[in-house]
Computed example of a mutant assay.
Amino acid sequence: MARVAFLGLGVMGFPMAGHLAANGHEVTVWNRSAAKAEAWAAKHPGRVAPTAREAAEAAEFVMACVGNDDDLRQVCLSDDGAFAGMSSGSLFVDHTTVSAAVTRELSEHALASGIGFVDAPVSGGQAGAENGQLSVMCGGGAADYARAEPVIAAYAKICRLMGPSGAGQLTKMCNQIAIAGLVQGLSESLNFAERAGLSISDVVEVISQGAAGSWQMQNRHKTMEENRFNFGFAVDWMRKDLGICLSTAEENGASLPVTALVDQFYKEVQHMGGGRWDTSSLIARLRR
């Protein structure tokens, strides 16, 4: 069992840190809002640190799951940040979805201090985090990954090293690109069924058994039908991720016309007041 610090206790980080504690690791948590860290400690064995730096002191592994590039830089590089508290030979594992550029930047900072660094964004949403069934896509050195993987296993369904530093983030971009087009197609299909006077449940029962079937269809069709959009990953965060995808595509020459279009559809959802709705809320703009 390892001494682990977990930084960031949002809808993903809170249960992920809980799985580490449940698996017997010695866990110290930190969150920008101290109340959330105290709530975690009331539910799980472990302690709360007042700063990221103090959480990271004496930790063998420091896991982070925060908001965006700037949040991650602050958590890593500020005077009270994790890197200031980590000792040589410890390992930083970043579960935040950020740009590959900031990943490589922070990896260089870490390595210069003798700290290992693995970028390890996750997919599976809030339910995956709560059930310990996340897909984890990693970038970094093979030796660092080999050390991190048994700890990550506390909340992973699959964990895979995809390549050098930044490769995990690039794989997560592939994930978000695929989801964006899929959810839009599902939204159009269900809205078409409604307007055609068909039963959505009956339609899904039939078409989900063929080539149209997907996780989104099985798990979200009912809530989409009922206009319930409080199931995890928010539109605001999806737009952040798609912005990273589109910016990276400008650099590598990839063509993402559907992703760019769906990004604008999510912008419309934001203007409807749905920034905190989950990503299946694309259907809401079709019902106006």
Rank of each mutant, 00 (worst) to 15 (best):
S208L: 00
G18I: 06
S87P: 02
M272L: 15
R32K: 13
G81E: 04
A22N: 13
L246R: 14
Q184T: 04
A64F: 00
A39V: 03
R147D: 02
A39Y: 03
A22Y: 00
Y145W: 14
I158S: 15
L111T: 13
A110E: 03
N175Y: 01
F83I: 13
V118G: 11
H25Y: 10
R276Y: 07
A180R: 10
Q209W: 00
H109F: 11
C138T: 04
E54Q: 15
V183F: 13
G18Q: 07
L186V: 12
A42L: 09
M137Q: 09
N175C: 04
V75F: 03
I200S: 08
Q209V: 00
E194P: 09
F92K: 06
G139V: 01
S88Q: 15
M16D: 08
T103K: 03
G181W: 03
S255E: 07
N227Y: 12
I177S: 04
W277Y: 14
R147W: 06
G116H: 05
V4A: 08
K43A: 15
H95Q: 06
A142Y: 09
G213P: 04
A153C: 14
A167L: 01
C65H: 00
G13P: 07
L20C: 14
S247Q: 15
V151F: 10
I283L: 11
C76R: 03
A260L: 07
R47N: 06
S189Y: 01
A37H: 08
L106K: 05
L242Q: 04
L182C: 12
L286W: 11
E149L: 10
G116N: 03
C174P: 00
T171A: 15
M162H: 06
E105Q: 12
E188G: 10
V204L: 05
C65Y: 00
E205P: 02
M63I: 11
E149P: 07
V102L: 03
R160I: 14
E108V: 11
K267T: 14
T28W: 12
H25G: 11
A178L: 14
L256G: 02
V204P: 04
I283K: 13
L198H: 05
A21G: 13
W215M: 06
W30Q: 06
P150D: 09
R287E: 10
S99Y: 00
T51K: 07
Q184A: 13
V11G: 01
V122I: 14
N131T: 12
L190F: 09
G163K: 10
S165K: 05
R160W: 14
W215I: 04
G124M: 02
F92T: 02
I207C: 02
A101M: 01
D263P: 00
N230I: 02
Q209L: 05
N31Q: 10
R3N: 07
E26L: 14
A254L: 15
N227V: 02
A101W: 01
M86P: 12
E205I: 01
M224L: 08
V183G: 03
H221W: 15
R160D: 12
A120G: 07
F192K: 09
W215G: 07
S247P: 03
